[in-house]
């Protein structure tokens, strides 16, 4: 990574898209404060409360779904948590242990956990990777709705262009190492909407703007 710079507005969702190995996950780790071996500056919004959804759910197998969420958000009110569980269709699973959940459910719990802290900055590292397409789409809708309601700054890492277009207000294309921002493309359509024509048009624009490197993006 070299000379990489970008900013985020409150309530905005940006998606980092780029070839694998260009350091997207590393970038998220730096922002989350997990990687300290870098030169540069990360400035946080006012409170800087962080919510993170890792590539794997990273739940505590020995605590129930509800405890997993409550442990990171001890001050969250019962009503808030109930609404959150409701939206993610989790109420039946409150007292289940993570070992009893499917991957898709576990990812939903990870989403609930990240939102329970009421984050100012939400970091999502390929949150729906290795889920079947239909489930990924549903989870994407749930995520879009959560972001709309709570409007944190959101940074999404994805190599699925449809997913990025569906969720983000702005796409940031990264080049292979050294990673730089190749192009910034705003997404006009509302979050969570899946208008195939719009997506196709955006894809065409992306291809035009990124001329040769566009082939790097799988979808």
């Amino acid at each position: 990574m070299d000379e990489l710079a970008f900013g985020l507005k409150s309530g905005e969702v940006a998606a980092l898209v780029g070839p694998s190995g260009c350091g997207k996950t590393t970038l998220l780790r730096i922002i989350a404060g997990l990687d300290r071996d870098f030169e540069g500056r990360v400035t946080f919004p006012s409170h800087g409360r962080l919510g993170v959804v890792f590539q794997e759910p990273r739940l505590l197998a020995w605590r129930t779904v509800e405890q997993n969420v409550r442990l990171v958000a001890p001050h969250a009110s019962d009503a808030d948590l109930a609404a959150l569980f409701e939206m993610l269709e989790l109420p039946v699973h409150r007292n289940h242990y993570p070992g009893e959940l499917s991957l898709g459910l576990a990812r939903r719990v990870a989403l609930a956990r990240a939102f329970a802290v009421n984050p100012d900055l939400l970091l999502l590292d390929e949150p729906f990777v290795s889920l079947d397409a239909e489930l990924a789409l549903r989870l994407r809708d749930q995520l879009a709705e959560l972001v709309n309601r709570r409007s944190p700054m959101t940074l999404l890492v994805s190599h699925n262009l449809d997913e990025a277009i569906g969720l983000a207000d702005r796409l940031l294309f990264l080049s292979a190492s050294p990673a730089r921002v190749l192009a910034e493309i705003p997404v006009a359509s509302p979050r969570g909407a899946h208008n195939p024509e719009k997506i196709a048009a955006l894809r065409a624009e992306i291809a035009r703007r990124l001329n040769p490197p566009a082939s790097n993006d799988r979808s």
Partner: peptide, 15 residues
């Protein structure tokens, strides 16, 4: 991985 999770969510030491 769980250590990192606890760190980013700023869990208190005792928790």
């Amino acid at each position: 991985a769980l250590d990192e999770m606890a760190q980013v969510f700023r869990m208190r030491a005792w928790t």
